[in-house]
Design a protein around this nucleic acid. Structure first.
Lengths: 323, 323
DNA sequence: GACAGTGATACAAACGATTGCACTAAAGTA
DNA sequence: TACTTTAGTGCAATCGTTTGTATCACTGTC
């Protein structure tokens, strides 16, 4: 059996409460006693039982992190940053994958609520109403989506999209296709709104599409049919798939069509041509989201929205329009 | 405050123990009572407190899943499969990322042990001795590594490597480079042993390398210097990076050099040229590993090693040797 | 020298479930 | 009829911590 606080207490000749306080309230115990207790605990290999602690304190010291698809390279940097940040605060992170399915997402939240102190919802596909309802049960921080009354972390894709379109128009493109993402995606909507508001350019919307290489691959025919010479893709995966799809149909990038992605994932930096893209501050988003979440676990939730900057990175997949 | 078993008991006029049994030992309670209790529980929105349950039963119903790097596309299918399988058995999965660092790996296992019933160790970089020691604290299943006395799930990379080398020699290649992975990697060692045992071919070993695109990119000069015309890379990421690196140095694939990867990740299927690779049954590995783990949580650990088949998939990155 | 203040520790009651045991009443057996 | 069995339920201890309160020995104050 595992060694408990009781064993440590007996071995060091003090009461369990003293042992407990030696760990969690050092100023309440004699420094000498404390070091002795700590040494003995170390010796015995004592590790506090988190379940027991959770039972009394009501804090599990776990947070849930729900993402649409771990396989999407957009998420890992965010996940890593969140885990690192959580570890700093002695929290652990449950990562769960919804497979882009709102129903799975809701179920996951439901089962997760009881064993975490808060949930980080990344790029949720749920309706706002559902989120509103679920938030009664557990504190949320929402990433990549506007949700009123809740702390949110956003990345300024609207501005990114405007920069991307400006970049394309500056290169002479007059007809631009926006290959949109999943229908429930806030990011996708933001991009559409931003692009629609641009002057001196025709924007056509093609979608919704799965946010993967295959989604991009499949969108190639639509892009060609649209007559657009510049494309802003929902993300880098879509952009990569699209470039492949265009190549299969004899269209070269950036020769015939210019393509811009979103996220700045590593494969995009190494693809051929190297992808022009809108870089997203995913790691920062993960860190900040965790801080916000832990903050709203302890005190009342601050419903502030944090907006992080994005940046257009011009590489090789965009070029002058030829007509 | 949350609704507890006590609230349900009061509302339905029975003792808490009856409510408890209504959930966890249905045959011990009158069917009528049971349905009534269940209905009231549902009504009140009762959810069992897992911390409390964990405290009495000693089972957290959580398992830990430790991977070297979530950002490596090799892992997500395994993670997803493991999560799905765990969910089927009413278990949750903690995913943790070690950043390829053995020390982080050990720390993570240490902190995780107390809140999970078992740990799935994927492609561990720890020494065997450390694993032996840690296993005293919590049941393990090890994936992608031989560890005696423990249940393991292996993928037959040795056979895969032999097939790959045979494929290359059949194409006329007589000098082959093996771009190895991290030094602690079992997979890497397996590949080396298999390749070294092949006849009619010179095999040179280049490494260790980080198992990423950048690792492959950096290995390009060594590959060229080695004079090899065929390359077996540690994994698809390395292969993709290598192809890029070769291109930067004026070498084309498969024109000048043939390259084979391992894992069959999606980016490899879409890269250009499409990657010849050894497909790994990652999803199956995840499922089986979870089953094995839950099995060894309940009963004594079966120390059996499960070996899963791999398959060579020939695409476009390999071709005839020209000299 | 009596007493408040304080520092250090012990005591014991939670937290929310599970579970062995005791009890009751009805059914089965001889 | 007297007994064992069994189904259904209640009782109470337990899991390992935390934490409010009580205790006690000092120290310092007037």
């Amino acid at each position: 059996m595992a060694v408990t606080i009781r064993d440590v207490a007996e071995a060091s000749g003090v009461h369990v409460s003293t042992v407990s306080r030696a760990f969690s309230a050092p100023h309440l115990v004699n420094p000498e006693t404390r070091t002795r207790v700590l040494a003995i605990a170390e010796d015995l290999g004592y590790r506090p039982n988190r379940a027991a602690r959770a039972l009394t304190t009501g804090r599990t010291h776990n947070i849930g992190l729900i993402v649409a698809d771990i396989a999407n390279p957009f998420f890992p940097p965010l996940i890593k940053a969140a885990q690192a940040q959580a570890r700093l605060r002695d929290y652990h992170v449950f990562v769960a994958d919804t497979d882009e399915d709102p129903q799975v997402e809701e179920d996951l939240i439901q089962t997760l609520t009881k064993q975490v102190d808060g949930v980080l919802l990344c790029s949720p596909r749920l309706t706002n109403r559902t989120i509103e309802r679920l938030r009664e049960e557990v504190p949320f921080v929402v990433v990549n989506r506007r949700a009123k009354g809740m702390p949110t972390v956003l990345m300024d894709v609207g501005r990114g999209a405007r920069q991307a379109v400006e970049h394309l128009t500056a290169l002479g493109h007059r007809r631009i296709a926006l290959v949109t993402g999943p229908s429930g995606s806030w990011t996708s909507k933001e991009m559409q709104e931003a692009a629609a508001a641009m002057n001196d350019v025709d924007v056509v919307f093609l979608g919704p599409n799965p946010p993967t290489e295959l989604g991009g691959l499949a969108a190639a025919t639509d892009v060609i049919a649209s007559g657009a010479t510049g494309v802003l893709a929902y993300n880098d995966l879509v952009a990569i798939g699209l470039i492949e799809g265009l190549a299969e149909r004899g269209k070269s990038v950036p020769g015939d069509v210019s393509v811009i992605g979103v996220d700045d994932i590593v494969p995009g930096r190494l693809s051929r041509p190297k992808l022009t893209t809108i870089a997203m501050p995913t790691a920062a988003a993960g860190r900040i989201a965790v801080d916000l979440l832990l903050q709203s676990v302890d005190s009342a939730a601050t419903a502030a929205a944090t907006m992080l900057e994005t940046a257009l990175i011009v590489r090789e997949s965009t070029g002058k329009a030829h007509r």
